[in-house]
Structure formats: C-alpha cells, structure tokens
C-alpha cells in the first residue's frame, strides 16, 4: 500500500537541504547555498518552509558585523526524513 510522500520533503531543494543537514552538526546558509547550487532567494524561502514545519532549526546571529544564518536539523526533521525514506523504499520495491 502506497503512503503519500511528505509534501514538505518531496521537493528537490528542500530534500537536498534536509539531506545535507542530516550528515553535519550545523551548516551556514552560504555553505548550503554553495552545495545545493541554489539562489539565495529560493533557498531562503525553502528554509523558512522547513523551519515552519519544525524540520530544521534556524539561528540568526552576527559574525564580524555581518549577519550569519546557521541551520541545524531538528528531531522532528530526522523523524520525517526517516519516514520519507521508508515510503520511498516501498515505492521502489513495488516498482521492481
């Protein structure tokens, strides 16, 4: 039986951000932008969506008088990601 894939995660950029944050402790906005090859505006919108869903934590601070945004995966984000991968596997198994 198919379970619907989490619409928050089933989007290219949001999934890339969550996958990236899962394998690190925390990452700066600029690092995520560089690795996902996205634009600052688009990334900012998607990060906000993930934050609103409670999947990531966003910390805004100043470093050497410049604003700095640090992102970190939240426990809810880990759970959602695990469920997403599980559902993904069921899709792929049935397809085979």
């Amino acid at each position: 039986m198919f379970k619907e894939l989490d619409p928050i995660l089933h989007s290219q950029l949001r999934l890339a951000v969550v996958s990236l944050l899962l394998s690190v402790k925390e990452a700066e906005f600029t690092f995520i932008r560089e690795k996902t090859n996205s634009t600052a505006g688009n990334l900012s919108v998607q990060i906000n969506k993930l934050k609103e869903a409670g999947y990531i934590e966003v910390l805004k601070q100043f470093k050497d008088n410049y604003p700095q945004t640090i992102c970190k995966i939240a426990p809810q984000g880990i759970k959602a990601f695990e469920a997403y991968v599980k559902n993904l596997q069921s899709y792929l198994t049935i397809k085979k």
């Binding site: 894939l5 619409p7 089933h10 989007s11 290219q12 950029l13 949001r14 890339a16 996902t36 090859n37 996205s38 688009n42 919108v45 998607q46 993904l88 899709y91 792929l92 397809k95």
Partner: peptide, 12 residues
C-alpha cells in the same frame, strides 16, 4: 538547483 515539486520521481 530549482525547487521542482512536479516530475520528481522516487528514484530522483
């Protein structure tokens, strides 16, 4: 990377 929501398969 764009935020593609459609035509995004499980394999992708």
């Amino acid at each position: 990377m764009k935020n593609q929501e459609n035509e995004f398969s499980p394999e992708q």
